[in-house]
Every structure is written in C-alpha cells, then in structure tokens.
Design a binder for these strands. Structure first.
Length: 263
DNA sequence: GCGACAG
DNA sequence: ATCTTGTCGC
C-alpha cells in the first residue's frame, strides 16, 4: 500500500518552520494502526509460533551515542543498529555522521535522522519492525523520530521513550505493577484533538516489595502500528531489563562502537 | 511573560 | 545524550 518516502527524510539544513511543516506532512502520511507483515503475537509466544510454523520477524533496535570534539563538544552522532530474530542477534551495523543541529525538543529526528538512515543502509537483512529510543506519535506534531524514520523507510516502527515529551497520562503512573499500561492522551500541546490516544506508559519491569520504584516507559506508534500493539510489543520484548531487548542491545552497542573510535 | 521540553 | 562514586537491596 504505502511506499518508502526518501523525499521526506529529515534534513538538518531546513529552517525550523520547514522542519515543523515536514513533521505535519509525516504525520498525515503515517498510519497509526496495525499494518504489519507478521502477527505480533509470535513475539509473546515464540514456542507456539514455532509449533504453528510461524516465522519470527526481524526486529531492529536503534540507538545513538555521541562523539566529542577535541574541544570537548559533541560534533558527531553514532547510530547503532542491532537486528534480532527470535531473541538472537543476527546483525549489527553502525554509522557516524557530523551533527548539523543541537538537540531541540520536538526536532530530534533532524539531529539524529541522518546517522540512523546511514546505519540502516548498511543493514543486509530486511527489517520487519523498528524500535527507536524516542517518541513516535507522542509528539507535538505527532511525528517523533520513530514516526519519521518509519515513514521514510516504510517499515512498521515503535517509539520507546524513557520520559514523557507531551500528552497526559489517563491515570497516575507512579509505582505501577509490572505489565501495567496507562493510556497517554493528547492535550493542548499536541496537534491532535484533546483526548486522542497517542500511546501508553508501559511498566515493563518493577521491583517486588521494597520501597524503590522503576519508572514506566512511554511507548507510542511510529508507523503502521496501533497503540495497543506498540505497548504489547514493548512488553513482549522486555525480559530482564526495563528496555525492550533490541533497544537495550543497540544502546550497549552504541557505547561499545563509540569506544573503538580514535579522535 | 511563564512554563514545558524525547535524546 | 554525557560527565561519574558511592550506595542500597536482593
């Protein structure tokens, strides 16, 4: 149905107004409902899936680290990509590009998009799903980094953020039980009707008894994934750690690869 | 003017 | 994101 849209790739040389305009276009082209090439249930029940003959999808985690200049200033971004299938790592690639703009809330894809697309170019396997470290639809213009890259590559994607950019939780998100999800809806700061379901606060991990708590993740549709499925995917892919495995591995790889670079 | 603000 | 020791708890 949809096609890749390289013409909508993030460009750090655009003006702020042009960036925001491009994001509105990305949001209008994005699909915030399930349109996957596989049944997401296979991620939760790998054994049953295998017995039924269902193949595991290639789930790709993406994360960035930054390289500093001789003067101690961040001048390059390193994007790490880890492809997994059935819980196993099948490929890892990374790319480094110069940074064009500083970090600006709401314009993250224009800072990290280039290195991400460059790294994805190095991937030889065909991705069935992308998991990004950042928001998808939980974004001022409903076009976070997961949505932007998902649309450009036309690959189903999910945004996994460690903190909330915008939107309002429908209930308290303090000390939730593991497995709990709380809807995040649009508020006045979001370019969508108030109350629109943007994603979910997802408690992938939680301590048992002590007086210490883990904060939830904020999961939202990037492209071709609905909010419930996005949350289900985050839960299914999280095992021993708070972050879904593909993203956690990409995070670790981003640091390792960074350490193997000279200047 | 004031507050909010992914990585 | 990044800079970093100690410290709490299982």
């Amino acid at each position: 149905m949809h096609q890749p849209r390289p013409d909508l790739a993030p460009d750090g040389s655009l003006s702020r107004a042009e960036m925001e305009s491009l994001q509105r276009e990305i949001a209008s082209v994005a699909t915030f409902e399930d349109d996957l090439s596989f049944d997401p249930a296979v991620l939760s029940n790998p054994l049953e899936a295998a017995a039924s003959g269902d193949e595991q999808p290639v789930v790709v985690g993406v994360d960035q680290s930054f390289l500093t200049n001789e003067d101690g200033e961040q001048d390059r971004a390193l994007s790490a990509v880890v492809a997994t299938r059935g819980g196993e790592v099948i490929e890892r690639v990374h790319a480094v590009t110069d940074l064009e703009i500083p970090y600006i809330p709401g314009l993250l894809s224009f800072r990290e998009g280039r290195p991400i697309l460059a790294a994805l170019e190095e991937l030889s396997v065909e991705p069935d799903l992308f998991l990004f470290d950042g928001s998808g639809r939980i974004h001022f213009r409903q076009a976070g980094i997961a949505t932007h890259i998902g649309v450009v590559r036309n690959v189903p994607s999910v945004g996994v953020a460690k903190s909330l950019l915008c939107g309002t939780p429908r209930e308290n998100t303090d000390d939730l039980l593991e497995g709990t999800t709380i809807g995040i809806e649009a508020n006045s700061r979001v370019d969508a009707p108030d109350g629109t379901l943007l994603g979910y606060a997802v408690q992938t991990r939680q301590y048992d008894s002590p007086n210490r708590y883990i904060n939830p993740l904020y999961v939202s549709p990037g492209h071709r994934v609905g909010p419930e499925t996005a949350a289900d995917i985050a839960l299914a892919l999280s095992s021993s750690y708070k972050l879904p495995e593909p993203v956690r591995l990409a995070d670790k790889y981003a640091d390792e690869a960074k350490g193997e670079i000279d200047t």
